[in-house]
């Protein structure tokens, strides 16, 4: 491994990302790359557009311009010709329906065949609708080739290898800690409907292994032995850790943490910083931190990017950023333009 993680190949490249809400520009043409195995941070005062940018990266909201490439694949951009896609779902079925109607009208085929064609039409419609919902990668690629583009959805990003936590904790409050982690493991498990019905040995073994792994993950984030506690009963700091464990369960390559230290006391914050370093060093994860508080990120970040009013105003090592007059101005609220 190289000395400086910033020299690594980029795992995520965002180019010219903008998001506009009506007349309000929340994020304005932001370029942003994350090198592999780096810890980078995005900071900025309240309302700088950090969370909006974050949500764009995660496929929660579509950008109005720009694109996000993750591990060489264009995942997110402004949707293009989406209306045609709906047309494509129904077109084959409509054509087949019309064809069979015409054939029947002309008396070329018998009634039984028409019924069969009608059934095929129905199946075609069901098939294309299912395809559109499951969205396998080849389907999206095929659509892109004919100029239809739809941004990845949050779950697509998880499948691709991006994990996240939320600014205001969003655990499944009524589940236990271990169940939360098991939900996070969803993409890693493959038991299907039939296997669930038959309770095959394979699916049983898979569940057992999943529970063991969930235990390991809980231990990793420091929640050993708390697996059976209800998520809502955990102390605040533990809930934040549990969220990280849930995100890790999907085997992400890149972990996006949205203000992970918010509401923590200094001791908890220190522990968290240690955990984040451990995730990078031991698991080889790439980490993007979003923070409101500059102090948290200075210690662990390889690079810090500052957003203000939706625009990138500075980028560099923590040292460089700390001295940047524009950053100081943004944070101290000096008379802005």
């Amino acid at each position: 491994m190289s000395e400086n993680p910033l020299d690594n190949e980029p795992i995520l490249v965002a180019e010219g990302v903008s998001r506009r809400f009506g007349g309000l520009v929340a994020v304005n043409t932001v370029d942003f790359t994350i090198p592999e195995r780096a810890i980078v941070s995005l900071i900025g005062p309240n309302g700088a557009g950090k969370t909006t940018f974050f949500n764009v990266l995660l496929g929660v909201i579509d950008p109005t311009a720009g694109s996000v490439v993750f591990r060489g694949r264009r995942m997110i951009a402004r949707p293009e010709r989406v209306g045609f896609e709906s047309l494509l779902w129904v077109l084959p079925a409509v054509l087949l329906g019309l064809l069979s109607g015409l054939l029947a009208e002309a008396g070329i085929v018998s009634g039984r065949l028409v019924a069969l064609l009608g059934f095929l039409t129905l199946m075609l419609l069901v098939g294309s609708l299912l395809l559109a919902i499951i969205r396998p990668v080849w389907y999206s690629t095929a659509l892109e080739r004919i100029g239809i583009f739809r941004s990845a959805r949050p779950n697509d990003m998880v499948t691709a290898g991006v994990g996240r936590t939320f600014q205001n904790i969003r655990l499944f409050q009524n589940m236990t800690a271990i169940e939360n982690v098991l939900v996070g493991m969803h993409t890693q498990l493959h038991g299907n409907l039939l296997e669930a019905f038959l309770q095959t040995p394979r699916v049983k073994a898979e569940e057992k292994a999943a529970e063991r792994r969930a235990d390991d993950l809980l231990t990793l984030v420091g929640l050993h032995g708390k697996g059976n506690e209800g998520a809502r009963n955990l102390p605040y700091g533990d809930q934040r850790r549990l969220e990280i464990a849930r995100a890790l369960a999907a085997n992400p390559k890149l972990l996006l943490l949205d203000e992970p230290a918010a509401g923590m006391n200094p001791k908890e914050t220190l522990d968290l910083v240690a955990l984040i370093s451990k995730l990078r060093d031991d698991l080889g994860l790439t980490i993007l931190l979003i923070e409101h508080d500059m102090k948290v990120v200075m210690g662990i970040s390889d690079r810090v990017t500052v957003l203000d009013h939706g625009e990138k105003i500075a980028e560099g090592t923590p040292e460089q950023v700390r001295k940047d007059p524009r950053v100081i101005e943004a944070y101290l609220g000096a008379p802005a333009a």
Binding site: L58, V60, I133, I134, R135, R153, P154, N155, V158, T159, R164, F166, R170, L171, F172, Q173, N174, M175, E179, L182, V183, G184, H186, T187, L189, G191, L193, A196, F197, Q199, V203, E207, R246, A247, A249, A250
Partner: peptide, 30 residues
């Protein structure tokens, strides 16, 4: 059997918090 499987967990997660479920990798529509 279904409800106690991985799919059952997914439904429960969706019912509780759809966005968090999606962020856990569940294709909520499917």
């Amino acid at each position: 059997r279904l409800v106690e499987s991985r799919l059952g967990r997914a439904w429960e997660a969706i019912r509780e918090d759809e966005l968090a479920a999606a962020a856990s990798g569940i294709n909520t529509v499917t």
